[in-house]
């Protein structure tokens, strides 16, 4: 565990709290892409299936995995029930089929091992790298986003961006390599880069 990894994870946690706080205080999910949220739930469920057999390996990892799955499911629950009237499907129109299909193809072609768990893990890594696209697309369509939504996207993007120095650090200190995560993480950070640029110039 290094400073980049822990800061990245904290950034991810913060993004979740920002999102839930925004929805609960404004009693709405305006500006939040339901499609992106569903993609994130798929990402966490397919990646953290290993909770079933690695639960005892790391209390930290297991706790975080449970938080990510639970908060993601809770977010979707809120969007489907409490705040459903504030969700406008007409502006949340990104074609996620391509993201899911593309991630599935990459996962099937280049997993570390052709086992169900490894293919699903790889699928989740690729899908996470593009899961923000419906949200960014929606942001672009609606123009101005609420400040709080902007902070949410920033914190979520910072999480994976911070993993990049973490992988570099781990490569030099423990010869750790994880090409799938690294390539997908770089793609993910590139997708956020335009947003990051606007964020920095604005705040």
């Amino acid at each position: 565990m290094n400073i980049f990894r822990i800061t990245g994870d904290l950034s991810h946690l913060i993004s979740i709290f920002i999102l839930l706080h925004k929805m609960r205080t404004s009693k709405s999910c305006i500006g939040i892409s339901f499609k992106s949220q569903v993609l994130y739930l798929i990402v966490y469920v397919t990646r953290y299936l290993d909770l079933l057999w690695t639960f005892q390996h790391s209390a930290y990892n297991s706790l975080m995995k449970i938080i990510f799955i639970a908060s993601s499911a809770y977010t979707i629950h809120l969007m489907l029930n409490d705040f459903k009237p504030t969700h406008d499907p007409n502006i949340d129109t990104f074609k996620v089929e391509y993201l899911i299909g593309g991630s599935a193809i990459l996962a099937l072609l280049f997993p570390y091992k052709w086992t169900t768990a490894e293919v699903l893990w790889s699928f989740s890594i690729w899908l996470e790298s593009v899961a923000i696209l419906p949200q960014l697309f929606m942001l672009q369509r609606t123009g101005e986003a609420e400040t709080i939504t902007t902070h949410y996207i920033f914190a979520l993007g910072a999480y994976r961006a911070l993993y990049i120095p973490n992988w570099l650090y781990r490569y030099f200190t423990e010869s750790f390599t994880d090409p799938i995560s690294t390539i997908a993480g770089i793609i993910q950070t590139i997708l956020y880069s335009d947003f990051f640029y606007i964020y920095y110039t604005k705040y």
Partner: peptide, 10 residues
């Protein structure tokens, strides 16, 4: 590397 148990990140 690659076995599920080696995925020690989130």
């Amino acid at each position: 590397k690659g076995h599920p148990e080696t995925h020690d990140e989130l």
